[in-house]
Design a protein around this nucleic acid. Structure first.
Lengths: 352, 352
DNA sequence: TTGAAAGCGCTAACAA
DNA sequence: TTGTTAGCGCTTTCAA
């Protein structure tokens, strides 16, 4: 069966093409009786608007670009996947679609923006993994491309909308939980200072250690590259201290699982002998019974798309005629939307 | 800066629009000197073809649909993510893009096909998770929508192109490895009979057990729902047998990790005391040192896109005029492309 | 409230 | 080898 066009629907309902278009996009302009007739014709012919034609006319594709990561870290890569899954479901519910791309680094990612924007006219992007002096956000902002980031604009003033999860609150909650369980010697096993996410997570532990007057001895604050091996070695060093900690809060599940492995290898039971809490609530954590701080990824995805919606509404049709004769938007440029900072949730399992 | 159009490039290079179009899509038709001039203009104006306009004209969007799964099983969901990651990278290299969608079940997935095809004019789909009497493949085939599946058309005759990984070969390799290590009592911990993938994986173990004359006692072949708890319970039952197996080949990493957990809880060392081999090479397997059968997902993604390319070449422009006046393709319908069956690879770690 | 005309940016078909 | 014409399916603008 040939595909139904707007024209064929119009003929079928004995109205003009424009009336069909209005019935679809501005039903309040159409007389109720006409509307009924048109809708009947639409469903009878199983008509759907042609996406490319509509995009060509309106300069809106309903497509949102998102980067899918090469599989870096074994344990934590899953965070992004869960975010993407939620993003797809949420976008779909709004009539938008997620288009994937990959890039090796930020520079390559910018090159892809260029391609995707001018070639494929995406409406917007959802970025993740922001960091200080992020050239991607600068690139997009300069060209006035609508976007939001999952991750705050560390350091910089942040002239764009963003959604993030409060890492410090996560480690604070973990530490608080351990204190409540009677621990006084609680160590932190994180990444070297200088990484924004890592420093944020460390600060939650440090805050609470200070507030609760915990016994923080030298060697109770480790900073190593993320990974199982490094985590295990760092944990071993802590356990070998003259007065070892009775609990370890970690910046990632990788590090926590490293610590977990070291404990097990020494015949110590995670939780009963030494408590360990991870971060990201990876599937591995669930498997081995590791307590972990869970990020509300579905909420984050929903917040990103809500914010994107606002940005797109505000920043209406860039484009217009190709000669760029449309004037500047009335009333100057509005500021970026209010950022959203979500609270993570501690998932308590056997290890803590 | 206003976006460059084909028109503006044509003016800049002092040729017609059509010549610019040819320079882009059929350079062999253009005089070398003209080509040089046009290309200079293109790069000077930083011109990119407008995707929607091209799609409208050619009825090809270069967009391929793929489903992203709701996070079902904690451990094995990652297989799909790795496949999607490869698919995205491979598609990108071919000038195609992956568009995501989600669906709760096959029926809903078909409804999405309808939406995506008529509304968004996707070129094709890559399905996964095929099973006997799959209504999705029937739906697509009936409408002559180009697609390939990652997963063979279990049971049915299979009139479409597919790429799959030989699960039986994987468990055969695992069993062979254990035999070589001196094991004689090797059990299989899989899913209940009736699931195609599960039966396939079981058959590899059964084949080799027969060929090698292994000691297969009652209770050495378990079939339980996938999961850690079920795997652990089934493993416990095996270990409680009067003559327990010395090695367990599993249909999934979930089951294997369940077995692994049970061994550890009993103070047994996976590998040294009882060997365990999983399937899918999840990140968790790597973390805990579980031997596992790895699927060549990147190769599978590449094969899917190669095959899709052939299908799209063969099945040229559906569509034409909207009144459907183009005749049937010459020479009748060609058959489906040759299927591709890839070999998995056993990754040996401490557990086996 | 509805209809007619124009045109988004591109390429297929044909003419020169 | 290049140019001209037409039109993909839709929405915007303006007139009725």
């Amino acid at each position: 069966m040939a595909r139904a066009t707007l024209e064929s629907v119009a003929r079928h309902a004995a109205v003009s093409r424009q009336t069909v278009s209005n019935a679809l996009n501005a039903p309040h302009l159409v007389h109720p009786d006409t509307l009924t007739r048109v809708r009947a014709a639409i469903s009878e012919l199983n008509y759907r608007p042609h996406h490319a034609a509509r995009t060509l006319r309106t300069r809106r594709s309903q497509l949102v670009g998102a980067r899918i990561e090469p599989w870096r870290d074994g344990v934590n890569g899953a965070v992004l996947d869960r975010f993407l899954q939620s993003l797809t479901a949420r976008a779909q519910a709004r009539g938008q679609r997620i288009l994937l791309f990959t890039a090796e680094d930020d520079e390559q990612e910018c090159a892809h923006y260029e391609d995707l924007l001018s070639g494929l006219d995406l409406d917007a992007f959802v970025l993740h993994g922001t960091h200080a002096d992020d050239r991607r956000t600068a690139w997009l902002a300069q060209r006035r491309v609508p976007f939001v980031t999952f991750g705050r604009p560390w350091g910089s003033t942040g002239t764009h909308g963003w959604v993030d999860v409060d890492g410090a609150e996560g480690t604070r909650a973990a530490t608080r939980h351990l204190v409540a369980a009677g621990h006084r010697r609680i160590a932190f096993l994180g990444w070297p200072e200088g990484s924004e996410v890592g420093d944020d997570r460390r600060s939650g532990w440090a805050d609470l250690a200070l507030a609760a007057g915990l016994e923080v001895r030298p060697g109770y604050d480790a900073g190593v590259a993320d990974g199982l091996g490094t985590g295990r070695a760092a944990a071993a060093a802590m356990l070998d201290l003259e007065v070892p900690p009775t609990a370890i809060v970690c910046a990632s599940d990788s590090l926590a699982l490293g610590a977990w492995t070291e404990l097990t290898a020494r015949g110590l039971r995670p939780g009963a002998d030494v408590a360990v809490v991870g971060f990201d609530d990876s599937t591995t954590a669930a498997v081995v019974g590791l307590s972990s701080v869970a990020q509300p990824l579905d909420d984050a995805a929903a917040a990103c798309l809500r914010m994107l919606h606002d940005v797109l509404e505000t920043d209406r049709p860039r484009g217009g005629r190709a000669d760029g004769t449309d004037g500047p938007p009335e009333g100057g440029r509005p500021g970026p939307p209010d950022p959203v900072l979500l609270s993570p949730q501690l998932v308590v399992r056997a290890s803590g």
